[in-house]
Design a binder for these strands. Structure first.
Length: 701
RNA sequence: GGGCACUUGGCGCAGUGGUAGCGCGCUUCGUUCACAUCGAAGAGGUCACAGGUUCGAACCCUGUAGUGCCCACCA
């Protein structure tokens, strides 16, 4: 058989993927029944896993985290797809009814932000557009990206069931989301509240607490004269309407004032009547121990006002401009206004002193615009009740985390959970019934496990739910994983998945986070094109422990390209030395041969154990080492005299031995390196050859 | 303020009680034999530090130092 001396992935991958897709075996309903014994005979009888089940009754299910349909695959997606494909291919070979369901996420706010940037470049703005028009355009943009992403997913070799692909805006998903919303309303777990929320003035929407980030910055703390009090503030521009001065009830310095006492105060724009309030929220150590409150624009102040039933007044509008209460400053942007306001305070003799002040502020996680707290009617989900069953399930290990320290992290978060603002003032998403707002995209993706499987009546839901593994980035454990657990338990009464496998970030070669602005983004498709998808995949996996971030070094991928070539050439050697070989006929083996096969069987068994423990980083390394440094370097070398010698029986035994090892190794490597293993498998002279190595049985149990 | 991790050869990481391993890189030699995208041989680490448990500690416990991440409404 003539084979080129180097492995050329460019001639193989598309062809092989087409073969798989055509076979229909990505679809669990179309998987063939299993033979009870594998042709290799390596699998010992009496195995107790589903490989005995020749009907493939036992399901294995992974739902792909719905890919954001707003761009291209990045290196992180490469890792997600590789890990999930490894699990899927492994379980399929083990005889499970294997479903890996692909999905796309409309990714509400994320996508709208991406699209708004595009509009900006074109000199347009969403605020000058009809909402329906904007929605149509984003839908078109999304559907274009969808095709792009699907094709890139194929390039990675993902053996997912495309016939079941779901989109978070599919009609049945939206129906499920509405049904959940209704159920939450019925159970009084969702409420419409006039509450203080995180407002991004650039994006003109509220954000959940998770969608803001803290930024430390140097500011000035201003001490202002407020009647007989000196109060401290970092934001003088919000103080126009302040008419409550708050001190701690135990503060001796202010004991002569009683709760509710009225005092006349000369303030920023003239005289105001101030009321003294005593509240425990005050930190006596901070500033002077006295402050005035601005309930509309500060969460602490809002809480105090709510507790004490105080008036609230809006000072800053939703664009970040001062309202008429600011007098001559009305209409000004708060940033421009602050120095002018401070100047006026000074002139009026109200500025006592200033000091440098280091503190953290909240900014929008997308544009880093300062978050302006605002009071607004929004929909909130009461989380404490929903968190309880989730905590219970996690404590009881009904859901297992890999790596396991995530258990503590998620429990800590669930125990301290706050209500969830699910209203967004954007057009791209699922509309909230009756209003102009849309749902937070995580409200729909939080229902993904049952929504994507067609809850409540579909056959798929009954067969595949609860799913087996949720594999995703550790970064989104609160955004997504925690919410899936809570909503899954709430709606279906069952946990949505049994194992959560969290991978770390994929960083650049120097260990820095990839970002467009830094220009260090590695496009996974560039690497697969250059070195082959198999090299890319196994290069991401070997030695990459779950939860740990991975520095993606091109040298590393190159190293595994060399390994792919080694696999190619060792196979080539075996195939070139099969003269006179008869498939299916077992020759007499020498004791040394038997010993080698026993060692192979042991390696397969060890790899299997590691696979079952989700230690792909070790299983891949084990098989890699076996293939290169045992099979290629030692066994093949040692067989050369027998293959070239005159003893026909010894030659036949040698051929059998090498082919047996090759076949077994290819199966063990297949989850990691699906393309090259398939390409070689197709060339092997086997008796009970399958249509594809994908449905071969795993060589151990 | 609270939480979760990490600290092992030049770099990136495995190893969780029994005399330190992998990949990349490095050195020397070799290569008409499947593969130079190769082979053989090799150099390189007092496992952050201190104390403790143990017959025995990179691994368990306590503390210290440093690094990273997450959560939190101190004006």
């Amino acid at each position: 058989m003539e084979l080129p001396t180097t492995y050329d992935h460019t001639k193989v991958e598309d062809k092989i993927y087409a073969l798989w897709e055509k076979s229909g075996f990505f679809n669990p309903d179309r998987l063939p029944k299993r033979e009870v014994l594998s042709p290799s005979g390596l699998r010992p009888s009496g195995s107790n896993d589903s490989s005995k089940d020749n009907k493939r009754r036992k399901p294995f299910t992974i739902l792909m985290p719905p890919t954001n349909a707003n761009g291209s695959l990045h290196a992180g997606h490469g890792l997600v797809l590789t890990i999930e494909d490894i699990m899927t291919r492994y379980k399929r070979m083990r005889g499970y009814k294997t479903l890996w369901l692909p999905g796309l996420d409309h990714a509400g706010f994320e996508t709208q932000v991406v699209y708004e940037k595009q509009l900006e470049k074109e000199g347009r703005s969403r605020f000058q557009m009809e909402p329906q028009q904007l929605y149509r355009e984003i839908m078109e943009f999304t559907l274009n990206n969808k095709k792009n992403i699907e094709n890139q997913t194929r390039k990675i070799g993902a053996s997912c069931d495309w016939s079941r692909e779901k989109f978070t805006l599919d009609a049945n998903v939206v129906e499920t989301v509405y049904a959940t919303f209704k159920k939450l309303s019925r159970d009084n777990l969702v409420y419409r509240g006039r509450r203080i929320i995180n407002w991004c003035a650039k994006h003109q929407t509220s954000l959940s607490d998770l969608e803001t980030i803290d930024r430390e910055q140097e500011d000035t703390l201003y001490y202002l004269q407020y009647g007989p009090f000196t109060i401290a503030t970092a934001r003088p521009e919000t103080k126009f309407g302040d008419k409550y001065v708050v001190v701690h009830p135990k503060d001796e310095r202010y004991k002569q004032y009683r709760e509710g006492q009225k005092i006349e105060v000369e303030w920023m724009n003239g005289k105001v009547e101030a009321t003294v309030i005593k509240d425990e929220a005050i930190d006596m150590e901070f500033g002077t121990g006295a402050m005035t409150i601005t309930p509309w624009h500060d969460p602490v102040d809002f809480d105090i006002a709510k507790r004490k039933k105080l008036d609230e007044e809006q000072i800053i509008d939703f664009r970040g401009k001062l309202l008429p209460i600011a007098g001559e400053f009305a209409g000004m942007n708060i940033r421009e206004a602050r120095p002018l306001i401070v100047e006026k305070l000074k002139t009026k003799g109200l500025l006592v002193k200033t000091e440098p002040y280091k503190h953290t502020v909240k900014v929008c996680y997308k544009c880093e615009t300062l978050i302006e707290p605002q009071i607004r009617e929004q929909w909130f989900v009461s989380m404490k009740e929903l968190a309880k069953p989730a905590i219970k399930a996690i404590v009881k290990n009904e859901i297992v985390f890999i790596p396991k320290h995530y258990k503590k992290i998620i429990l800590h978060w669930l125990k301290n959970i706050e209500d969830w603002n699910i209203s967004r003032q954007i057009v791209w998403g699922i509309p909230i019934p009756g209003e102009t707002d849309t749902f937070d995209t995580w409200f729909s993706s939080g229902q993904w496990p049952f929504a994507a499987l067609g809850y409540p009546n579909s056959k798929d839901f009954k067969t595949f739910y609860p799913t087996d593994v949720m594999e995703t980035a550790g970064e989104i454990i609160f955004f997504w994983v925690a919410r899936m657990i809570m909503l899954g338990l709430y709606v279906t009464g069952k946990v949505p998945f049994k194992t959560v496998y969290l991978h770390g970030l994929v960083l650049d070669a120097k260990g820095k986070k990839m970002s467009k602005s830094k220009g260090n983004v590695i496009n996974p498709l560039d690497l697969t094109t250059k070195y082959g998808t198999d090299a890319f995949r196994i290069g991401l996996i070997v030695g990459n422990t779950p939860g740990t971030s991975l520095a993606l070094d091109e040298n590393r991928i190159r190293g595994y390209r060399n390994f792919a070539n080694k696999v190619w050439n060792a196979s080539r050697f075996v195939l070139m030395n099969l003269e006179g070989f008869k498939a299916g006929k077992k020759p007499t083996l020498s004791p040394a041969d038997k010993k080698i096969l026993t060692a192979l069987s042991k390696t397969a068994k060890e790899a299997t154990k590691l696979m079952d423990e989700f230690k792909f980083y070790k299983a891949s390394e084990l098989v890699y080492h076996y293939f290169w440094h045992t099979f290629a370097d030692k066994i093949i070398e040692a067989q050369k005299p027998r293959l070239g010698g005159k003893d026909a029986k010894a030659k036949a035994a040698s051929q059998y031995l090498l082919l047996e090892i090759l076949q077994t190794s290819l199966k063990l490597l297949h989850p990691f390196m699906p393309f090259i293993t398939e390409e070689i498998y197709q060339k092997l002279p086997l008796k009970n050859k399958k249509k594809t190595i994908m449905i071969e049985s795993w060589p151990s149990s």
